[in-house]
Design a protein around this nucleic acid. Sequence first.
DNA 1: TATTGTTATACTCTATAACTATA
DNA 2: TATAGTTATAGAGTATAACAATA
Lengths: 155, 155
Amino acid sequence: MGFSDPRIGGGTAVDPGLLGELLSHAVARANFSGDADFQRAVGDRSITPLRYSLLELIGANPGLQQVQLAEALQLSRSAVTLAIDYWQGRGCVERRTSTIDRRSFGINLTETGNALLADLRTRVLAHDRRFAACLNQHERAELGRLLHKLQGGAE
Amino acid sequence: MGFSDPRIGGGTAVDPGLLGELLSHAVARANFSGDADFQRAVGDRSITPLRYSLLELIGANPGLQQVQLAEALQLSRSAVTLAIDYWQGRGCVERRTSTIDRRSFGINLTETGNALLADLRTRVLAHDRRFAACLNQHERAELGRLLHKLQGGAE
DNA sequence: TATTGTTATACTCTATAACTATA
DNA sequence: TATAGTTATAGAGTATAACAATA
């Protein structure tokens, strides 16, 4: 039944090859497992890390233009349009046409959006604590520092 | 022209809200910028980090079953089927029907696949060095250690 | 019955290009 | 001309469920 294969049964691991030495791959793996836990924590599978982060940004910066949100999240304008459409469809966000520049909108949370964001925050916070549960206080701070240092370092 | 908005012009940053405190979000951001650089390093936009990592694993573990590849990358069987289809379509990989268990294949690199993988490795290595360029030797080791510790910590 | 792999389906995410309206 | 936003399109990535072949 294939147990003659040394890789099976005895728990012999797959050889990661070069992957084991790549920091970028380690980041990708950590991200992947983080996403899975995020999903479990939030419950609603349509609320993804990206969509949550957009809602969070809107909550923290009421009235921002879509272009500014796109820049903050490093996304294209169309990607932001779609993500905002999602939240608007759920009644969480509204587009207020600007009186100064009628090409653009100010994006704001509705009452519903505010309530949902508050709920999401507790779930996401629990998720993040679980995500970093195996690290001590010092390690978390250090990881955060290193990751932030990495930001934009590959330009 | 909107410059009355304090967020515009003067370089005032967008408030990250809770995102600024989430380790999982910092990981996601780092991953995102890493992917962008990976793309630039590799050139061919259809060769994604996922597809590369599959090829790397096949190269390091000739003859593995698809199920084992799926487990190693934490993917569904169907996701692996599609990714292997991609490499097979490019003549880089072949499915050899097992004589022991005729339900499964052993996945192997072709000559073409071997050559491509060798080329990719130098590009990906350059990418990873650039990715971590702003960290010193000690910081890289520490980041690697912390990320590996994170693996599976959210289960 | 259980497992390996495939296929069908459905969604998310992303970008580019072409478009509209406004500046 | 340039910018904000939308739409259409295309492709990547993912999972679930139903299926075939084999164990």
